[in-house]
């Protein structure tokens, strides 16, 4: 495992499309639920415990068994009831695969996998292990939304990064759990849902005016 490779993969500047997505935050800002730092903290904590846990588990599993990308991809389909979120996840998976092809040698996989499955496949190609894939996935589910919070609400970027720092222990724990379950059957992998993320994504997709793709 190369720590430097993990940093390259998890770097927010990796050109993999993340900047265009708010991770569901824009919808909740518009709904009036998220106006300040505390609400961002609550949003991130809930997102990490749900979408973050699932993303970490699927990234770890795809890294451990990249040949099973198709069934893992279907597993995420069944965990993502919102068509808008499926679309956003696949768009980001496609962008990640595009970036990764210039970095490492990828096995033949579908063009637009769900992002966590793509992340696992890419991590494997980069010589990383399931736990590293999982920690990148868990961190990624919060860092994108945190960046969007700075842009949408004009929050103090230091304070927002303070939130991310306080979530690192949770990210590590989730990643360790994900790695321990990386060989589980697809139906047994975590499926923690977040109803407001689903509903918000569907409402967001109907807006005529929005800043983020999701």
């Amino acid at each position: 495992m190369s720590l430097a490779s993990l940093l390259v993969l998890a770097d927010g500047r990796l050109p993999s499309g993340g900047h265009a997505h708010s991770g569901g935050l824009e919808a909740q800002v518009s709904a009036g639920r998220v106006r300040d730092l505390d609400a961002v903290a609550g949003f991130l904590r809930g997102k990490l415990a749900t979408a973050g846990l699932v993303a970490a588990a699927f990234a770890a599993a795809s890294c451990a068994r990249p040949g099973e990308w198709a069934s893992l991809d279907q597993g995420l389909d069944s965990r993502t009831p919102s068509p808008a979120l499926r679309k956003a996840s696949r768009a980001q998976g496609r962008a990640l695969l595009r970036a990764a092809r210039a970095m490492w040698s990828l096995p033949p996989v579908g063009r637009d996998l769900h992002q966590p499955v793509a992340l696992g496949v890419v991590a494997h190609a980069g010589g990383l292990g399931p736990e590293e894939a999982a920690v990148a996935a868990a961190h990624g589910t919060t860092s994108g939304a945190a960046s969007a919070a700075v842009r949408l609400l004009g929050l103090d970027p230091y304070a927002v990064h303070g939130l991310l720092a306080r979530l690192t222990a949770d990210c590590d724990r989730i990643a360790a759990d994900a790695a321990a379950r990386a060989e589980s059957p697809v139906d047994d992998l975590p499926a923690a849902g977040a109803p407001l993320l689903d509903i918000g994504a569907e409402l967001h997709a109907t807006w005529e005016v929005r800043l983020f793709a999701s």
């Binding site: 569901g24 909740q28 709904a31 639920r33 998220v34 609400a39 903290a41 609550g42 949003f43 991130l44 904590r45 809930g46 997102k47 990490l48 415990a49 749900t50 979408a51 597993g75 069944s78 965990r79 009831p81 949770d170 139906d187 975590p190 499926a191 923690a192 849902g193 977040a194 109803p195 407001l196 993320l197």
Partner: peptide
Amino acid sequence: RHELSVGPHAPGWSGAAV
């Protein structure tokens, strides 16, 4: 395939994502 956790031991369940 869906799980939902609510209550004091579910992190962030009353946050704006859940």
